[in-house]
Nucleic acid binder design. Sequence first.
DNA 1: CAGGATCCCGCTAGATACTG
DNA 2: CAGTATCTAGCGGGATCCTG
Lengths: 146, 146
Amino acid sequence: MATSAAQKRAHAKTEYDAFLAGCPSRQLLERISDKWVALVLAALGGDDAGGAARHGGSQRRSMRYSELSRRLAGVSQKMLTQTLRSLERDGLIIRTVTPTVPVTVTYELTDLGMSLQHVMYGVKDWAEAHMGAVLANRTHYDTVHS
Amino acid sequence: MATSAAQKRAHAKTEYDAFLAGCPSRQLLERISDKWVALVLAALGGDDAGGAARHGGSQRRSMRYSELSRRLAGVSQKMLTQTLRSLERDGLIIRTVTPTVPVTVTYELTDLGMSLQHVMYGVKDWAEAHMGAVLANRTHYDTVHS
DNA sequence: CAGGATCCCGCTAGATACTG
DNA sequence: CAGTATCTAGCGGGATCCTG
């Protein structure tokens, strides 16, 4: 249609649309749709191993590089560093360097990071909660589809 | 902070831990942490283009292959088909073939799929909502870090 | 300790062509 | 219309070595 006026009005709130290939939000969606992002945020969001003290998991927690590295089993330094840099650049986490004898670096969620952690935690939690159902569905699917 | 008994009970549900490299939930997290998954679920979850009729977005919507292909701008048939197969195998969507003259295939969310759509919508929505802030942070970061 | 820099392999995503 | 099949380029991501 010629009049883009109507479209603009509808766009008011939805300035960005991830369904559109060229939209920046599409790239952002791609970035945050990453297992390492989910796990880093979950770790900094206070998602403890035992599953305790979570649910909304609102207390943010400062962690050192080596702590994160240990927590995210199997992550390479490259991916961890790369993920941390990306998150820092996007303003989701803050990197603090303390010039102790061997230098100490800690990472912490920003408020913006906390807001994302909230939704990303849901994804990680979903995966853990529905793993059994998914596994069953896969077996069924593989059985049916010879 | 009381007895660990309470924790253990809460633990009962947390049979899987995505922080562990070998855990199946780690792979599942990796699968669903995908932009195409997010977009397919959002589309089938009734996330309309104009931004209308959403929020909790609870009405599921049946869509044809070509509809999805058009909706997810820029997706290749390979990626779309691959994503749809994966989601079907995991029991998140249902594929229905109607033997009309040119065959008609429709996709629809299952209840399990709806539950994931709920959390994934949050991710897509976050990306669109905080795009501006992230963009500003990036500019700032790039400015500071010569 | 917390990375930076390289090398390099593998797999994935994209393009293209073909089919029921 | 709704895919399947094939080929290939590109880069994601791991391994390794080095540094402040």
